[in-house]
Each structure stands twice: as C-alpha cells, then as structure tokens.
Amino acid sequence: MQPSESSWLKTLGRHLCNKSLYALNFCSELLITPDDTLLLSIEAYGDNKTTRKNALLHHKFLHHNLTVEASWPDLFVDDLGGYWDVPFSMAIDLASVASDSGASYHFCINHNAGQPKQHEDQLTSAVAMTLLPGLFIKNAFSFKKNVDIWRSKAPKLKMVQPFDILLSNPHISASGILGAALTACIGDNLVRSRGEDSLPFKGLTLRAPVVNSTILADIFASISLSVQYGNFQRLFLDLTRFYARLDFPSGSKFISGATHLAQDLYNSHQPSVEAIQAICPKATLSLQQQIAGPSVSELIQEWHSITRTVAGM
C-alpha cells in the first residue's frame, strides 16, 4: 500500500470514528394566505449537539416583497471560509419587485444576540464585526436604465421550441445602475468605511462612541454590455453570446484612489498600488457558444483587481 493511500485511509477512519454519518431535517411549509407563506424547519447533524431551528415568513405586496426570518443558532461563513455560530439572529427584509428599468430600493434590518463562536471549534480567523451582538440597518436605493442598441425583428423558426426561451432573442444592449446605500450599526457590530485606510477620502462616516453606533453612506454603480447572435433553436451553432460587466462597489473608495493618484502624478511620484487598485472596477466577462442541441460551452472570467501588472510597468 502506498503511503498516500495509507494516510487517506487513516483520515477517513478517524472521521468515521469521530462523526456520525447522519443528518436529520424536518421542514414544514404553510400557505397561510395566497400572499403569505410560513416556513418552519429544525435540523441536526451527526454527533453535533447543536440543533438548528429556523422560521421564515414571506409576504407578497403589490410592488414589494417582505421577508421576516429568525434562526437560533444561525450559521455564517466569513470571507476566509471560516464558519461561525451566532446564538440568535433575526432579519427583516423589504425589497421592491425587480424590474428591467426604473427605480428600486431595498431595506434590511438584522439583529444578532449572543457572542458568536467558530463552528466545531475551528481556529481560522478573528470574528467578523458584523456577527457581533447589535442592530444592523441598511437601506439601498438604485436606478437602472436599459438601452437596446439593436434587437432582431426576424421571425423565429415555426413549430420549433427554443432550447431556452431566455436566450432566444438576438440583440445588442447595454444597461447601467447607479445607486446609494446608507448603513447604520448600533452595538458591538460596528463596521468601517471602505474608504478608510491610507487613502485621503474617507467617505461620509458619522460615529457616536457614547452609544456605540456608526452611520456610513456610499454610492455604487455598474455598467454592462450584452451581445447575442442566434435564436438557440437550431441543432448546431445557433447561439453566440458575449456579456461584459464593470462593477464599482464603492464610490468613496473610487474617489479616494482617484484623488491619491492625481496627487502622485501632480507631484511626479510613483503611483501607489493601493490607489490604482481603488479605481479599478471588478470586471466580469462571459462567452457562451452552442455546440449541439442544448449543450453550450461557457467561459466566465472575473477580475477583482487588474492592477498588479499595471503597477509593475
């Protein structure tokens, strides 16, 4: 037996001895009214003595959706992949119904109670501030505009159903989103502005240490381009689609980087990597090509930062 196989078998045996391979989940969905749905669930895993309970109420208004959810304890995952148990978490979420163009807003309240601890005694990272006890309120407003540069008016094949009705209209279109977000934290779950670091512009931040609270305001934007050829009806090569999107998640961070970069150029200094990273948006590129029938080859590439190569030039 190879050493690697022996190590793998030992690891598997240790997990089988220490963990029970079972999971129990009881879930009930109640239709209270045509517009109200109540979901109740309770679940347990293996030898873990923690039993997770969850209650979720969903209500449909004419132009809004309301969701109220409570979990005890609730399971979260941080940016580093660490799992955290929060003794009690409750959230109220009110959002306008999504539309292709026009204004929309999103209002959310989240309350955490009790000190979080890492799931199954993991030792990976410090607890995220947003998981600490306190009240978290966030309100976002955005305006979206879609522009059709070209859309095919050619008739589709008769008596032939497209493989995907959402990918059956050849077009060239662009869209843009501009919005603002206001965040308020009361308690230990204080957050920092994205513009706070070594950059000069701090964004709009109000702090009240006496009541342990913070208010943050920021803007965000996104632009995208979609190009499609083919109706996705024929058996071969009837769909070619290209999609590109640029996301600017923080206006304060962008202004910080632009200001710092302008100062470096004005003073004939080498631009800092941090400033260039701050003004570079997150880029997403997607290319889809039909091979045969419903089979589509898709390539997706994301760039969170494209500045390291540029800064080294």
Rank of each mutant, 00 (worst) to 15 (best):
D79L: 08
Q277P: 11
E69F: 01
P162D: 05
D148H: 11
H111R: 02
F141T: 10
A181L: 09
S198V: 10
S198G: 09
H111V: 03
N231Q: 12
S213E: 12
F61H: 09
I165A: 07
R308Y: 01
M159L: 15
L265V: 01
T11I: 14
L9Y: 05
P170Y: 06
E274G: 02
T309M: 09
L261V: 03
I291T: 04
S89K: 14
F141D: 11
L182K: 11
A91C: 12
R241E: 10
H171P: 04
Q301I: 15
A113F: 13
S104K: 00
V191K: 06
L39S: 14
A55V: 05
N112D: 09
T259M: 01
G195C: 04
T51C: 03
Y22L: 13
L178F: 15
F236R: 07
W72H: 08
S7A: 08
A262L: 03
R245Y: 02
D247M: 03
A208L: 14
N54K: 10
I109N: 04
D36Q: 07
S96N: 03
P249A: 03
P87S: 04
V211Q: 01
I276K: 07
E120P: 12
A275L: 00
I223K: 14
E196D: 05
G312W: 08
I42C: 10
V77I: 13
A311N: 12
I42G: 05
L30R: 08
I149S: 02
S101I: 04
D218C: 04
D247T: 03
D85A: 11
Q288Y: 13
L66S: 09
I42Y: 05
H106W: 01
L167Y: 15
G230R: 05
T307I: 02
N54D: 09
A126N: 15
S224P: 08
L204Q: 06
Y22D: 12
S125T: 06
L9G: 13
G293S: 13
D74G: 13
L246D: 00
S96A: 02
R194S: 13
A244L: 11
A154F: 13
W303K: 01
L66V: 03
P73V: 11
L75H: 07
D247W: 00
V210E: 15
L239W: 14
N112E: 09
F76K: 01
K49I: 00
N189R: 02
L285N: 10
W8V: 05
Q288T: 11
T214F: 00
D78R: 07
W303D: 04
